[in-house]
Design a protein around this nucleic acid. Sequence first.
DNA 1: AGCTAGAGTTCCTTTAGGGAACTCAAATCG
DNA 2: CGATTTGAGTTCCCTAAAGGAACTCTAGCT
Lengths: 150, 150
Amino acid sequence: MQRTKFGDMACSIARTLDVIGEPWSPLILRDVWAGFTRFEQLQADLGISRKVLTERLNHLVDHGVLERRPYDQRPRHEYHLTAKGIELVDVLMVMAGWGDRWLAGEAGPPVLYRHHACGEISRVDLRCAHCGEPMHAGDVDLLPGPGADR
Amino acid sequence: MQRTKFGDMACSIARTLDVIGEPWSPLILRDVWAGFTRFEQLQADLGISRKVLTERLNHLVDHGVLERRPYDQRPRHEYHLTAKGIELVDVLMVMAGWGDRWLAGEAGPPVLYRHHACGEISRVDLRCAHCGEPMHAGDVDLLPGPGADR
DNA sequence: AGCTAGAGTTCCTTTAGGGAACTCAAATCG
DNA sequence: CGATTTGAGTTCCCTAAAGGAACTCTAGCT
């Protein structure tokens, strides 16, 4: 919805929300990641209105997060994550981790993640790209960066 | 807006969106994290409608992400992140990292993060909690978990 | 007694989401 | 060869949520 455009703010969180902040967008990305790549599949799995699905897919394609790939002579296509989009799914994995921890309740997490490198069921952990130690919201100071103006 | 309630889905991403998926919510969290803790400060900094700000703050308090702390005899309070809320800010840091990388453009990132542990300007990196190797969206298989049923 | 400030409410307008029906083009069926 | 099916959208109407400005309420100050 978002009548106010967040994209103009000098804030990478706001700008990211301009791409995936609208209702349904993160779930569309999740579904494409999980292998639901066609319009009908997405619509059926999410139960989203066709109108809104069309709008969101166009928005995500426009922002280079998804790409449309034809799979037939007819105007038929599948949606796939671009490199930019795959990195955005990292955000979803962290969201999933938080939801698993704080909202899953008795039943436990609905989805498990098996890490290719070690083969184990695991979860993501935030580390400092510089020193490798844990890096969470309480472990940092915020400083104005070069793009801080307006 | 989100007429459809995501919280009932068997998906931790959807459930997390039920908490912070509405417009403005992530930015409110960001502001509280950055030290804007009072109603008037938040309203002025974000330019959000007072009505919507009230709704969002109540929602975030109800979900245990923020807590209301009185700072005066009068009904005056400040909003603070709970433990649950601080962990949610991890999601924002990953969003910021993506925005810095893909949307910041020429000017560079608007905000820099200094990691307390090493004192360096850095960014978060996703690692496997089990083996410590990088763990990104392309590095995992999704499997149904114990809470997978509807 | 009147003014100010923080923190919300109320009310009205505008816009975006939900949902069902409709369109359109190519392939396939009888 | 005409009729049906299928994927992928459009169109339209209705309702709910965002924007915005004005109003309220309470306690302390002058």
